[in-house]
Amino acid sequence: MGVEDFANWLRDSARVLHENAGYLTELDSAIGDADHGSNMDRGFAAIVAVLDETSFSAVDELLKKAGMTLVSKVGGASGPLYGTFFLRFGTALAGAEITPASIGEALKAGVGGILARGKAELGDKTMYDAWAPALEAYDAAVAGGSDLAGALAAAAEAAAKGRDATTPLVARKGRASYLGERSVGHQDPGATSTTLLLESAARTLA
């Protein structure tokens, strides 16, 4: 596991987000400001541009650069949120050996950053509704002796369930919260992009 693997994850994520940009924006147009897909696409395309231009010697350097790129290029709230995730995820991996356990710790640090930044709680109909079950499933899989591939697959699967569970919820954070009850019946775009990122990780980081 090294720089190349994480770079592949980011490239694969960029591809998937690009393919799903219309879908994400459609979800966001129902309850938000109709820009989540284009914002994420722009942010990850910028990461790919950085990857094409720069070579990184350490995983944390790469991930932190990705985080800063998202902070500057995404524009919406997902910029600082995913940006913080990658900054903290990368920082946690600085100098560490890449193992299922260290990745688990790093994920926790990254999601901790999302929580600190967004101040969301479980059930607020946000990306955290996908991250929280994913972290739990990941830890459980590692505890049960699973390798990185298995643990990430479990996390992605749990995230998808969490994502689906956002549909009946009332949004309590972000632009969607202005809609109140009218946000019910729509899947949360942030939880959807989180799931795409984790699914991509399961494909590429094994």
């Binding site: 400001d33 820009d35 914002n39 800063m68 902070v71 500057s72 290029k73 995404v74 524009g75 919406g76 910029g79 600082p80 940006g83």
Partner: peptide, 13 residues
Amino acid sequence: GLDETTFGTDAAA
């Protein structure tokens, strides 16, 4: 804004 016309905010900026 991310630029003159694109809505968005940038923590670095």
